[in-house]
């Protein structure tokens, strides 16, 4: 929902980043306010997954320019765990398996770290179990998964549900969901999307990263951004996604070429 005077949660200005000395982000600008749902779309290699990793602070990604403020605070200066504690959540495209580490224990430690940051009491084992069982319903997940090791032997859909369960427990202010729809069948997609919708409030915001319309059929975005060559090329409402669906991404190339021509080598700025 777009609310006037809503709090500005995220402000990205001219963000540049590299992986292995390869520039991937080349000047991203984006603002997200509380209550909004944004979708970033684009082809593989357009930089959208890199954007999510940079926001979460993955060590392999090096920021070479620009700034990111989260509620006015310099997000890039914080270690990844601190970003999570203050309410930035990344739902991974490929959640890793961590053999030997119990899912329940992992969820409890993570939840308590966030609670402490918010000035709330840590939950003991029993109260946490109550909480986790309540939140399991958001993603209709079998409690048996709690007893297993983190993501170990989970199917693709189970891993994604486990991601949304974590989101339900951590109650982030900004949830970045990287290709959450990939590898999901239609039922799993509906459950995951239902979870995301359920968790969306006027106080928080969601940034969906996807390249298919099908996720946006079930989660309605307020803004759609098209990313290409490391920048946000165009921004519109939900109709932009439909346009992409119909016309494909080819027009993006044309537009890129046009922009290059217009800028004549001047630094390209995204359209906000």
């Amino acid at each position: 929902m777009i609310l006037p005077d809503a709090e500005l949660l995220l402000q990205i200005v001219d963000l540049h980043a590299r992986v292995d000395d390869q520039p991937i982000l080349k000047g991203v600008n984006l603002e997200i306010r509380a209550g909004e749902i944004h979708a970033v779309m684009g082809r593989n290699g357009s930089g959208k997954s890199t954007l999510s990793k940079v926001l979460a602070g993955h060590p392999s990604y090096r920021v070479t320019g620009g700034s990111v403020l989260f509620r006015g605070e310099d997000l890039l200066a914080l270690p990844p765990e601190q970003r999570a504690r203050i309410g930035v959540f990344l739902g991974f495209q490929y959640p890793v398996e961590i053999p030997g580490v119990s899912n329940l224990e992992f969820l409890r430690v993570a939840t308590n770290a966030r609670r402490l940051e918010r000035g709330e009491e840590e939950l003991d084992t029993f109260s946490f179990e109550d909480l986790v069982h309540e939140r399991l319903q958001v993603v209709q997940m079998d409690p048996a998964f709690l007893a297993r090791s983190v993501n170990e032997g989970f199917s693709g859909g189970e891993k994604k549900r486990n991601e949304i369960l974590q989101m339900a427990l951590l109650e982030p202010l900004l949830a970045i969901l990287d290709e959450t729809d990939s590898g999901l069948d239609i039922d799993a997609l509906r459950i995951v999307a239902g979870g995301v919708n359920h968790l969306a409030t006027a106080a928080n915001a969601t940034l969906l990263i996807t390249h298919y319309q099908r996720l946006l059929d079930v989660i309605t975005p307020d803004f759609v951004h098209v990313m290409a060559a490391g920048r946000i090329l165009r921004t519109g409402g939900k109709e932009l996604a439909l346009e992409l669906e119909q016309r494909g991404y080819d027009w993006v190339d044309q537009e890129l070429a046009d922009q290059e021509l217009a800028n004549q080598g001047a630094p390209a700025l995204g359209v906000v």
Partner: peptide, 22 residues
């Protein structure tokens, strides 16, 4: 693996010791 744990708010040392005890 460390990053995954850190991205969930778990501190570096604690993440390491979780991994080791796992």
């Amino acid at each position: 693996q460390l990053f995954y744990l850190q991205s969930r708010g778990i501190g570096f040392e604690e993440a390491v010791s979780m991994m080791v005890s796992g």
